[in-house]
Design a binder for these strands. Structure first.
Lengths: 335, 335
DNA sequence: TTATATTGCGCAAACGGTTGCTCTACGATT
DNA sequence: AATCGTAGAGCAACCGTTTGCGCAATATAA
């Protein structure tokens, strides 16, 4: 570890020490422009030895770039969502760093996009990743209006918005299909916020699975837009009255409430009721019985989102929609 | 919402439009330097009307500042830690924004500080907040050696390191004192990573409470450095053998394992065993019985840490150590 | 050999701000 | 009336890079 009482090296210092121009040093580093092979190597060797690092601010100013990407996290997520966002962030960070970008984090308070506007207006970011979008989303509209490159993690309802998401539709469809094949006929659905686009995708997957199986759907056993514990409990009560043989939970937080309720009602799993959930998060990992679940790779999602954003920033064309895979993990709760 | 097909305004544009010099505009904005009152107002009005925002890169380059602070998050935290870190981040962000700083997030993989070094060497941050430190911490040593302003959230063992923390020592001492006064005599302790400084503080609090009460400590019922579920279970078994009347858990993740184990062993709470935990996190909020716990305000912690860092960045003197309060929340599990 | 590309490199002007210094004008002091 | 102090504003250098263009020197083609 070196002391750093002396000022940091600048490109001029390097140039002077080597008896070349700043231009040459710059070109040696960037690899762009015309420069002789041995000169380049000489420069690079010197840089390496003296640990010179370009000042990103100056570089950014010259190129009118910041080498930062903004990541918008919703502030109001639950404990259950956290590991998902965290993994996703890790994926984003790894990718960003590999391209010498950093991530500027900001949390939105609900639908307020003041922070986002600040970030953009202050020229602090080259692009933005939006983690979760609403059916009508001021963030999306702002970014579109300002022509800032951005991608949404999770689907969005908007046209011409680049999105990266797990294929919730296919995932939910496959899960429900499997359950139907296992002779469950009355599959209840609980949870999800109607304002989140992902809820709609899943619901559609559920409906499609039923249609595919040629079984009519009973709307009475679909309880979307239920999140609070008390609401979940009531929904479970109704499902018990309706005599469903399986409950699919839209996320693991809801699932916990469902499990608690069933426990209190002395309904055995999987004996009297099957249960399945989303995300396969660690919060359920010790549950007895183990819970059948859909599993998504949040880290990959982050990685891909970041890569796509980079393309966008570089002005390259990208697929408007990238859907990532999932896995159905069958466990004891649907045996 | 305005279109932005035209280039962004620069300070020169503003100056030209107003028939003044860039200097004047700059001074009107910063409030520094000599400028006439009406001139300033004229400039500010124009800026407001045309929504001019200075380019932070250029500003930073001129002042050799970035207006970013780095926040180092450990990558390997558990679900239980997440809400704590998240709240803390919110506190940091609010404060940073109010001073026109942004936060650059990075996750350390264990003790590796490559990301941190990158951030610093690339001139991307003016200061750093370290979320959690180890007993021997490469991050701390690096930052000290580079003379970068930084503060640690959570205590650190190092001299001359500015730290902001909840008073875990006092908190644990008070909790244990209260339990002792409630006639529990054999209070078991489980959990915490020995490598984390906070664990030591709490342990000391526990010991001090015992000393204060004039009761000799039985080292056999202290099981520090236990985190994995299987280890926790074994520790619980030993505590049951030792006949303790209360178990204090070092964090809520450990507490969940303890509760599960006790449930399986058919030990009733609080009838046969009292239980207390740290953090009062949402992960325990639905537990029956409700769990006595210490509560800390993570958001405040973030706020204070950020404020202190700002002082440091501005070159002002600060207290080397700031300890924040806590609350003992007595619930059913110790009744 | 001469005309023509091509290569290697440097000059100097950006990029968009800040700031030390200078200059003018004007009110106050003697 | 002459001197001084100061307030208001601008000039120009600077922060550390990138990059378009120009100029030799060398390599290639005729």
């Amino acid at each position: 570890m070196e002391q750093s009482n002396e000022r940091k090296l600048t490109i001029s210092d390097v140039a002077e020490a080597l008896g070349v121009s700043k231009t040459t040093v710059s070109r040696a580093i960037s690899g762009k422009g015309r420069i002789g092979k041995d000169t380049r190597e000489r420069v690079l060797a010197y840089i390496e030895e003296h640990n010179y690092k370009p000042n990103v601010l100056a570089k950014g100013l010259a190129q009118l770039k910041t080498y930062n990407i903004g990541v918008m996290l919703p502030e109001d997520y639950t404990v259950v969502d956290l590991p998902f966002f965290q993994s996703c962030l890790v994926g984003i960070e790894e990718t960003a760093i590999s391209l010498d970008y950093d991530i500027l984090l900001t949390m939105s308070r609900g639908r307020d996009c003041a922070q986002l506007v600040r970030m953009v207006e202050n020229h602090k970011v080259d692009g933005v990743i939006l983690m979760r979008t609403f059916t009508e989303d001021a963030h999306v509209e702002y970014l579109k209006s300002q022509n800032i490159p951005f991608v949404t993690v999770g689907s969005s309802n908007y046209e011409n918005v680049v999105q990266v998401d797990n294929d919730h539709h296919a995932a939910c469809r496959e899960l429900v299909s499997i359950l139907l094949m296992k002779q469950m006929k009355r599959i209840g659905l609980i949870g999800g916020a109607e304002t989140h686009v992902v809820t709609q995708s899943r619901l559609q997957g559920y409906l499609d699975a039923y249609e595919e199986a040629g079984i009519p759907v009973n709307r009475e056993i679909i309880h979307v837009n239920i999140e609070k514990e008390i609401m979940v409990e009531r929904a479970v009560e109704k499902l018990l009255e309706e005599g469903v043989d399986c409950i699919v939970c839209m996320d693991d937080a809801v699932c916990i409430h469902v499990l608690n309720k069933l426990r209190r009602e002395k309904v055995s799993i999987p004996g009297q009721m099957k249960v399945a959930s989303f995300y396969d998060s660690s919060i359920l990992e010790n549950n007895l019985p183990s819970i059948t679940s859909l599993s998504f790779n949040a880290r990959d999602l982050g990685t891909v989102a970041c890569k796509v954003l980079m393309e966008l920033i570089d002005g390259n064309a990208v697929k408007p929609r990238t859907l990532l895979g999932y896995e159905v993990i069958l466990k004891d709760s649907t045996k």
